[in-house]
Amino acid sequence: MGYQGHFRVWRGSAEGGGLEDFTVEVNEGEVVLDVIHRLQATQTPDLAVRWNCKAGKCGSCSAEINGKPRLLCMTRMSVFAEDETVTVTPMRTFPVIRDLVTDVSYNYRKAREIPAFKPPEGVAPGEYRMQQVDVERSQEFRKCIECFLCNNTCHVIRDHEENKESFAGPRFLMRVAELEMHPLDEADRVQQAQSSHGLGLCNITKCCTEVCPEHIKITDNALIPMKERVADRRYDPIVWLGNKLFRRS
């Protein structure tokens, strides 16, 4: 049955703010987002929170709960003790707009910097043939709901604003891997992953994989294989020698 839960919610804007305490009803089977909505409906009508599908499919309601990057709609209240204070704060890596809503435009900028799928020349629509086993690798990455929790947690940019310029973040490095592993994509993406999207900054601590609500193995299946492809190309001694001898850059 229902109980009175203790919540601390960060409220404020780009100019500043802080944690505010609330006592609010919690019912059986609810998730954190339900409680945030109850706060809106009963105590704080102007509490800003971004959400949409409420089923873990759209990736809108990303925030940090007790310091952990999570989706508000997929965090059940039953994982907390009834007397535990639940602290909800906005994602830290992105600038706050208001309350729990952050400016995630960094992610949309990075999405634009990844060259799009390059369709195979001379293959008409309807003539694409691919084997299930070959599409499955990229399909895993296409499960991504773009909640940006991986980019939020990644230490390369979490506390290093200066890296945002050169680093696409796990989400978009995974997008590069997805296209690189697409059976019919015709672009060469290996060099760019390192030179334009900052793959070298990733030191595979797997924080992104840990927070992924879709349980995509970002590090093992996307980032490490990309690093290996880069290494094959860049550090291959014969290629290196060829480049030296024939002055190819």
Binding site: P119, P125, Q132, V135, H182, D185
Partner: peptide, 13 residues
């Protein structure tokens, strides 16, 4: 649907 494949969609096969 076929056009979506030219946008990069990956359907089950």
């Amino acid at each position: 649907v076929w056009e979506l494949e030219t946008y990069g969609a990956l359907f089950d096969r």
